[in-house]
Design a protein around this nucleic acid. Structure first.
Lengths: 224, 224
DNA sequence: TGCGATATTGGTCACTAATCCAATAGACTG
DNA sequence: CAGTCTATTGGATTAGTGACCAATATCGCA
C-alpha cells in the first residue's frame, strides 16, 4: 500500500526530538551553525522539513540548542575526572594546542560571531563560558591545594587561560597554518605564567599527554 | 520627461566605484560583512542594485574589498608615526583594551569566521594580519633599540601580543561586559610579560594615553 | 479491535538574495 | 548641436530561507 518513495517511520516524540537535535549538532560542528536549516536537518534524517518545524517552531532555538549540546559534550572530553591537576591541565592544553579540537574551536568562533545577531545565542554562549570557567577554576584550586600551582586569584588565572585559548582559536580558519613557537605554545606559556609554574613544566606534561595520545591524534588528522 | 520618482545621477566610474566600496565598508563596520548585500549598498546610495553588480560582478569581491578597506584605514589610526616606542605601544593597547575599537574588533571576529566559507577572504585576511605584524614587529624593534623592550625574538613577542588582542576580542559580542582585571588588562599584561617590561610599566603608560584621550573615548561611548 | 491523538507529509506563501539583460538617459566629443 | 558611448535602470530569473497548514498515516490506548 505504501508508495515506494516514502515510507514514513513514526517515532516517539522525545526520541525524534533528540535525533533532530543531535543531527543539528553534527551539522554545527561539521559545517557551521548557519548551515543548520530545516531542509538540511530534514535531508540528513530522511524526513520532511515540516517535521523539524514541528519540534522546533523557531529555527533559531534549534541552532542554540545544537550549539549547547555540541559544546557540552566536548566539555566532558576536555575535563577528565581522574589524574593529578597538572596532568588534567596538560590534557586540556594538549587538546587546544594540538588539532584535536579543530571543529570545536571553529564552532566557538562561529557562535561568538553569531552572538552579534542573536541575543538568545549570546546568553546561551555566556552560560557555557561560565560552566567552562567553573571547571577550570576548580581544577586550578585543586592544583593550589597540591602545591602544583601558586596563584593568588584562581579565577584570574582561569580567565587568562581561556582568553589565551580563544586567542589561538581565532586563527582556526586560516588556510596557512601558523607554526611559530610563540603561537603554537601560547596557551601553555600563558598557563605556566599565570599559574606560577616553572618554565617548561607544563609544556613537558603536555608533550607527554600528546605523545601518549599519538594514535588518537593521527586519527583526528586523517579525518581532516 | 523624467519620472518624478527616479532621477538618475551619472558619475565617473572610478568615483562611483569608490563610493560603493566606501559604503560597503561602512556597512561592514556597523552591521557586519554578511549585511553587505547589493540591495543594502544600493539603498544607502540611492541607486539600483543592478548598478552594484555592474561594478562588482561578484558580491563576494565587494565584501572582501570592504573588509580590506576598513581594516587598512583603522591600521593607520592604531599605529601612530610619532612618539617613543612605549607611547606608541601604549596607544595601540589603549585602543584595544578600551572600547575605542569596538567595531573594528567585531569586524575582525566577523571576518575570521567568514574565512571558513571563503578561501579568498581567508587569503585577504591573512595578508592584513601580515601587514599588522610587520607594523608591530617594527615598533618592537624600535623599542629594543632604545632599550625600552628586552626581548630575544621580536616576532615572537609580536605574535603573542596579537594573539592576546584576538583573545580579548573574541568576547566583543558578549552582552554582559566582562570586568575582571585579568581580562580587562590582559593585553597589557601579555605585552609587559613578552617584552620584558617591569610590571605595571606599560599599564601606567596606557592609563596616561587613555586619560589624555578621555574626550575621544567619551565620544566613542556615546556612539554605542 | 476500533478509536482518538498526533507524528508526519506535501505543498504553499512571503521573503531576501544574486545574477543577467534589454532599454534608457545622461555626459562627453567632434 | 547632434551623435555616440556607457552609466544606470527596471524587470525577469533562479535559488534559498523560515513559517504555516490541511491531509494522512501511524501509534498508543481503551
Amino acid at each position: 500500500m505504501s508508495s515506494p518513495t516514502s515510507q514514513r517511520i513514526r517515532k516517539l516524540p522525545e526520541e525524534r526530538r533528540a535525533e533532530i537535535l543531535s543531527e543539528a549538532a553534527n551539522i554545527a560542528l561539521a559545517e557551521g551553525l548557519e548551515r543548520i536549516t530545516l531542509r538540511a536537518v530534514a535531508d540528513r534524517l530522511g524526513v520532511r522539513p515540516g517535521l523539524i518545524s514541528h519540534y522546533y517552531p523557531a529555527a533559531e532555538d534549534l541552532v542554540i540548542a545544537a550549539f549547547v549540546l555540541a559544546v557540552s559534550e566536548e566539555r566532558e572530553e576536555l575535563f577528565p575526572a581522574d589524574g593529578d591537576p597538572v596532568a588534567r591541565l596538560a590534557h586540556l592544553v594538549s587538546r587546544m594546542e594540538g588539532d584535536g579540537a579543530f571543529e570545536l574551536t571553529r564552532l566557538w568562533l562561529n557562535a561568538r560571531h553569531l552572538c552579534r545577531f542573536s541575543p538568545a545565542l549570546a546568553e546561551a554562549l555566556e552560560h557555557q563560558e561560565h560552566l567552562d570557567r567553573q571547571r577550570l577554576t576548580s581544577l586550578i584550586e585543586d592544583g593550589m591545594a597540591t602545591g602544583d600551582f601558586t596563584v593568588g586569584d584562581p579565577l584570574a588565572a582561569c580567565v587568562r587561560i581561556f582568553v589565551a585559548i580563544d586567542g589561538v582559536g581565532a586563527y582556526v580558519n586560516n588556510t596557512q597554518a601558523f607554526t611559530h613557537e610563540a603561537f603554537t605554545h601560547f596557551v601553555s606559556d600563558v598557563a605556566e605564567w599565570s599559574l606560577g609554574m616553572r618554565a617548561g613544566e607544563l609544556r613537558t606534561a603536555v608533550d607527554q599527554v600528546s605523545g601518549g595520545d599519538v594514535r588518537a591524534k593521527a586519527k583526528d588528522d586523517a579525518g581532516r
